[in-house]
């Protein structure tokens, strides 16, 4: 905290939790996690460039139980940031700021993230691609 001695505005513990603030907080949190996740993409690309052994190490870790759990979590994390981000882009045009539609689009983003995650992992885990 800056040492100004000035009073601080009321913070999280004072407010009643509402979906609007949760989506805002989650957007930042998921953004930070996506930033870390970007390193996995770079690792994967670098492993292809490095050769078959490095690639086998990468796919081995990615396909392990731990790797799978991380990837499922990252998928949900990514889709949430994507859906809520699109919502923000729409709102940047000035649309959807009335409280009811704001609340509705907040929930829509959350639900869409879970649905998209479920679709992707159903595709992967049921072997529909094979």
């Amino acid at each position: 905290m800056a040492q100004t001695g000035r009073p601080l505005s009321p913070h999280l513990q004072v407010y009643k939790w509402q979906v609007q603030m949760v989506t805002s907080i989650l957007h930042r949190a998921t953004g930070i996690i996506n930033a870390v996740g970007s390193l996995i993409i770079v690792w994967g690309l670098a492993s292809v460039a490095a050769g078959p052994e490095a690639f086998a190490t990468f796919t081995g870790v990615a396909g392990s139980p731990f790797g799978t759990v991380v990837l499922v979590g990252w998928t949900l994390n990514f889709f949430y940031h994507l859906c809520n981000g699109i919502r923000h882009l729409v709102q940047d045009t000035g649309a959807g700021y009335a409280v009811p539609s704001f609340v509705r689009s907040s929930w829509l983003g959350i639900v869409a993230a879970f649905v998209l995650t479920a679709l992707v992992w159903a595709y992967i885990l049921t072997g529909a691609h094979a």
Partner: peptide, 23 residues
């Protein structure tokens, strides 16, 4: 952000299309 909407969806589609592929 707008660019990433398209690029990331393309990326996910590409990764899913070569799932379990060999080197």
């Amino acid at each position: 952000a707008l660019g990433l909407v398209f690029l990331t969806l393309w990326f996910i589609g590409t990764v899913l299309s070569i799932l379990h592929a060999d080197y």
